[in-house]
């Protein structure tokens, strides 16, 4: 989780990732930032994020993103 927050802060520093729960709906993460994020996550956690998983519900908070990573690691 710490590593994920680190990545997020590097990409978009102006957000409090501990509390923010509308990263996509609140337009804190735009499409381009999400692409960068996916690329970083895939490198760091050795998972592949399929396009079908790129929905606001999976990216609206750091917690949700972390849950997605864990789910993909298990598959």
């Amino acid at each position: 989780m710490e590593k994920l927050i680190e990545i997020l802060k590097e990409l978009q520093p102006e957000v409090d990732y501990e509390t923010c729960e509308n990263l996509v709906d609140g337009r804190y993460l735009d499409s381009l930032t999400i692409l960068s994020l996916i690329s970083e996550i895939e490198d760091e956690f050795d998972v592949v994020i399929p396009t079908v998983e790129i929905i606001p519900a999976n990216f609206n908070s750091a917690k949700k993103i972390w849950e997605l990573i864990q789910r993909l690691e298990e598959e």
Binding site: L35, S36, S39, E40
Partner: peptide, 8 residues
């Protein structure tokens, strides 16, 4: 990575 994501 910024340039890479802009191109992507």
């Amino acid at each position: 990575h910024r340039f890479a994501s802009i191109i992507m």
